[in-house]
Amino acid sequence: MTRFVVLIAYGSSEWDGASAETRDYYFRAHDAFSAYVAEHGTEHSSGALADPGAATTVRRAGRARDGDVVVTIGPFAETTEQVGGYYDVELPDLDHAITAASLLPAAYSVEIRPTITIT
């Protein structure tokens, strides 16, 4: 078993104007994902993230340990695709994670990252 974080990128504006039918498709896709994970492993947590406009980024000036804390408005990087949600799951391997990710809505780009133990 490996702990994977499944990161979802999605244009958030698409959700706001979505029809009831579209929303239903999204809910069913997420249910299918969760059912598959429950069958083959464990879902530890999940979350939908607020719009990147609500993000706040905190850095130390010059990346120095004694640098001033600099707070900026917005996400890490301005890109067309932004992380919009995540799942934290435990599954046997990447093949299962790919199968699970392929159950999510078609408009998503999904990044699968194993977590590692820091020693």
């Binding site: 391997d93 990447l94 093949d95 199968t99 699968i112 194993p114």
Partner: peptide, 14 residues
């Protein structure tokens, strides 16, 4: 090893 690619035979569907 890092990405979690298994030494395994996948589902018959895949």
């Amino acid at each position: 090893v890092g990405a979690g690619i298994p030494f395994a035979v996948p589902d018959a569907a895949v």
